[in-house]
């Protein structure tokens, strides 16, 4: 195993473009979770990002909250301003693993690991986040919504690093995130959903119900219509099932069943909508 220690971001870009097989490491909580048992797969060259000051900061501009590539869940949990303006980020961050993981794990790592169960991704999707990719050739901004192509496939070239996650500042009337797992901490999500409402615009994103974490456009339209009293009022969770079925495709796996995931997604959405007076 080789570990490269870049001194600057420019170094890092060079190392990545010199060798396309280099794997960047941020917190290492995904990459090394199975180490050393999966060592065969892990006999790789790693690029340690943790020393790159350029990637650490979390900052606010007039129009955006910008998370650095090394911003951890804990950075967000302990920031009162984030809690006030983007409460979903805090709600989700608090439910990732437990404190140790929250202290090491990064949002960028969560995105690039591309697990369908990633808890950081649905809330970022519902806030319309953009991923900034950087390389020797320059930077490129990709809306998170367009970032994933398929299971573990994404629009990131091997020589690119995620450098920032940019979240537009808007006034939201509602924002909530619900994670259903087998226990209250150290648990991978069975089904999760993040919702935001800004004016008439609904964003709904779900995890663990498709090959990638995904937006749910049919549900968004349906909920917006119901909320705007343009549709039938909701009477039971099963009213949501057609939209759910057109948006997501849950499966049976080691953590849950397709049926449970679908049912629970419908129920938590239904009751949240009811509670919100929709």
């Amino acid at each position: 195993m080789t570990i490269l220690l870049p001194g600057t971001l420019t170094d890092a870009y060079r190392m990545l473009s010199d060798d396309p097989d280099v794997t960047p490491v941020a917190g290492g909580t995904d990459l090394f979770a199975h180490w050393p048992e999966n060592r065969v797969k892990q006999s790789t060259t790693y690029l340690d990002l943790s020393g790159l000051a350029e990637l650490r900061s979390m900052r606010w501009t007039k129009s955006e909250l910008v998370l650095g590539a090394l911003t951890t869940y804990w950075d967000v949990v302990t920031d009162a301003r984030v809690a006030a303006e983007f409460p979903n980020l805090v709600t989700a961050a608090r439910q990732v693993g437990a404190v140790q993981i929250q202290a090491r794990g990064t949002w960028a790592g969560n995105i690039v690991n591309a697990s369908p169960a990633a808890d950081g991704v649905p809330v970022l999707l519902a806030y319309d986040a953009t991923v900034r990719l950087g390389s020797r050739d320059g930077v490129e901004d990709i809306p998170l919504d367009e970032f994933y192509l398929d299971y573990k496939k994404m629009r990131r070239r091997p020589d690119q690093l995620v450098t920032e996650i940019r979240i537009p500042r808007r006034t939201y009337q509602r924002a909530w995130f619900e994670k259903v797992g087998p226990r209250k901490s150290q648990a991978i999500t069975k089904v999760g959903v993040a919702v935001t409402v800004a004016g008439e615009t609904w964003r709904i994103a779900a995890n663990s119900v498709a090959p990638t974490v995904c937006r749910c456009p049919a549900l968004e339209r349906y909920c917006a219509a119901v909320a705007g009293a343009k549709g039938q009022p909701l009477t039971s969770p099963s009213d949501l099932l057609p939209a759910i079925r057109s948006d997501v495709s849950p499966i049976d796996d080691i953590r849950s069943t397709a049926e449970y995931r679908e049912q629970v997604l419908a129920r938590i959405l239904f009751h949240a909508l009811n509670d919100a007076g929709v």
Partner: peptide
């Protein structure tokens, strides 16, 4: 991680 037992 996957064999779930209760936490605090």
């Amino acid at each position: 991680l996957e064999y779930k037992s209760p936490t605090f």
